[in-house]
């Protein structure tokens, strides 16, 4: 082997860095996303520990005598019309909103991932069929259809989750499909085929690991969509039925009182706006960090 170039060496100090390392650093460089992430963490903590943060339950009408009281040192967000501590209801609303977002996003991935992977990998008739289904979903405005479905099923927690997933999977599916299509003809897939790897082996070992970024991004971006859907439906009275606290429902209630008791309208509005904004900004930052080529999609 005289002619072969000398064995190539690499400095020992050079640390090997995987894709996750670079993604993490790209994320840290995005100040807005980091800020959103910190705020999101705070909101999550508040939601998780809501039962321990205030002394009362969200539905306890403990302060009936001072119903509709304005915010004070004792009741940060005031008291609602039925004598319940509004701050307690807002932070319990976060539990409802975020848990629906997470559950719906999980279902969206559960539906969108296999369909997207199948459509992207096999192409042809299967792809055509799945794309026609998606076309149907794209000419039906999701909120209107969701409204219809929610009204027909009379709302409720699990129906809302399922409805949100029904309209959330399309985006996940399209993202996974695009990624799989981009990778399907890569030569390392061909090399694995040349080695005799089965279709399942290739999908599990090569396609899915390389689709992790769009899956995570699709998951995170599906969360605010589901949260907005829930809030919208609850606002219109077909979502989460009272007395379970939901921000959309509370905003609707707030309209009736806004001229005199503005706090009933303001706090749920701000809570919803901030949470949705923070989740979206975090998701966008994550997308840009995980896969710069997905930017703006």
């Amino acid at each position: 082997m005289a002619d072969v170039a000398p064995v190539l060496t690499i400095e020992a100090s050079h640390k090997s860095r995987g894709a996750a390392y670079y993604a993490w650093h790209r994320f840290l460089a995005n100040k807005g996303a980091v800020f959103a992430g910190v705020l999101l963490l705070l909101i999550l903590l508040v939601a998780v520990f809501a039962p321990f943060l205030t002394g009362v339950g969200p539905n306890e009408q403990k302060y009936l005598t001072s119903a509709l009281a304005f915010p004070s040192a004792e009741h940060w967000f005031g008291i609602d019309d039925l004598g319940r501590d509004y701050f307690t209801r807002i932070i319990h609303g976060a539990r409802v909103s975020i848990s629906i977002g997470l559950a719906a996003a999980s279902f969206s991935v559960l539906i969108g991932l296999p369909l997207g992977a199948i459509a992207g990998y096999f192409g042809g008739t299967i792809d055509w069929f799945i794309m026609r289904i998606i076309e149907i979903f794209s000419v039906v405005p999701p909120l209107l259809a969701a409204l219809l479905l929610a009204a027909l099923t009379k709302g409720g927690y699990f129906n809302i989750v399922l409805i949100a997933a029904l309209f959330g999977w399309v985006q996940v599916c399209l993202m996974v499909r695009a990624q799989v299509m981009a990778f399907r003809n890569k030569e390392f897939i061909r090399a694995a085929q040349a080695l005799g790897g089965s279709t399942w082996y290739i999908i599990l070992r090569h396609i899915i690991p390389n689709s992790i970024s769009p899956i995570i991004v699709g998951f995170v971006l599906a969360i605010p969509l589901a949260m907005m859907l829930e809030a919208g439906l609850s606002f219109l009275g077909v979502g989460i039925p009272p007395p379970t606290p939901s921000w959309g429902q509370m905003i609707n209630l707030g309209i009736n009182f806004m001229f005199f008791y503005w706090h009933l309208a303001l706090f749920p509005t701000l809570a919803l706006a901030i949470t949705v904004l923070v989740v979206t900004m975090f998701g966008d930052g994550l997308r840009d960090a995980l896969d710069p080529t997905l930017k703006g999609r």
């Binding site: 959309g248 001229f259 503005w262 919803l272």
Partner: peptide
């Protein structure tokens, strides 16, 4: 762009009403 695309319309509407109708009283709600 971020605000307009993420915050639901009824939230924007509510804030508009609170500011311009309730607090400033400039416009009908």
């Amino acid at each position: 762009a971020t605000l307009g695309l993420t915050v639901p319309v009824f939230v924007t509407s509510m804030l508009l009403i609170l500011v311009f109708a309730v607090w400033l009283g400039w416009l009908p709600a």
